[in-house]
């Protein structure tokens, strides 16, 4: 190959044979198919982003990254007496759960809660509204006494578990407390039959007066 012809040869447009092009296209399509199967076949996204669940029972003090949490004995009724406003009624049953929060490291304002009902459904608890949990900022070392109230159908009471966490929107990769409330169908029946209003006091640093 002469020196003058080599550059001319390089400038000429060479095309690979048809078989090679077809093979390459087939390989690209195969890679796309395999990629789709791999990303959609196994549901790993939820597990990778899952929170660290710390389990416990009523009365146990759960040690989370950001706070020490104790869930006390729940009560219930068909009528709720909130701190502010008039009585609230529900087509199901009100569940009122006292929660004690002691922050660790710096002041923490817990805002996330949800109830995993015994019927398999998830009952949302927001920072305000009919089903609410709002403890406010807790000073480290100074226990904060808050109350969570949620309305559920009676079939969700038996076997219900309560989850409490820090950030209301995002609990990924952080500690979440899960407490088995130890409720039975007998509790559900008793509460759906009664209409004595159950109190849901606002959060405070003073322990609630025990009747």
């Amino acid at each position: 190959m002469s020196a003058a012809e080599a550059p001319r040869r390089l400038r000429a447009r060479v095309r690979p044979p048809a078989g090679r092009t077809l093979g390459a296209s087939a390989a690209v399509l195969a890679a796309l198919v395999v990629g789709h199967v791999v990303t959609s076949a196994f549901p790993v996204d939820e597990r990778v982003a899952a929170p660290f669940v710390r389990e416990g029972a009523v009365g146990d003090t759960l040690d989370l990254r950001y706070a020490r949490l104790t869930v006390e004995e729940p009560t219930g009724s068909t009528v709720l007496a909130p701190e502010v406003g008039s009585l609230l009624a529900t087509p199901g049953v009100w569940l009122v759960v006292p929660v004690t929060v002691e922050a660790k490291g710096q002041p923490r304002a817990l805002a996330f809660a949800e109830l995993l009902g015994g019927d398999g459904r998830t009952y949302t608890v927001f920072t305000g509204g009919r089903s609410a949990f709002l403890p406010g900022a807790a000073q480290p070392g100074v226990p904060r006494y808050a109350t969570l109230h949620v309305e559920v159908p009676p079939e969700a009471v038996a076997g219900a578990r309560l989850r409490v966490g820090l950030d209301v929107e995002d609990q990924r990769h952080d500690d979440v407390a899960e407490v088995d409330l130890g409720l039975t169908q007998a509790d559900a029946d008793a509460w759906s039959a009664g209409d004595t209003p159950v109190r849901a006091p606002a959060a405070s640093d003073a322990p609630p007066e025990h009747p």
Binding site: Q106, P107, A137
Partner: peptide, 18 residues
């Protein structure tokens, strides 16, 4: 404003509390 102890735990000043 906050005060801290030897461990570094922070106790915040809260204007509207207690």
């Amino acid at each position: 404003l906050a005060v801290r102890d030897a461990d570094g735990t922070r106790y915040d000043y809260v204007a509207d509390a207690w």
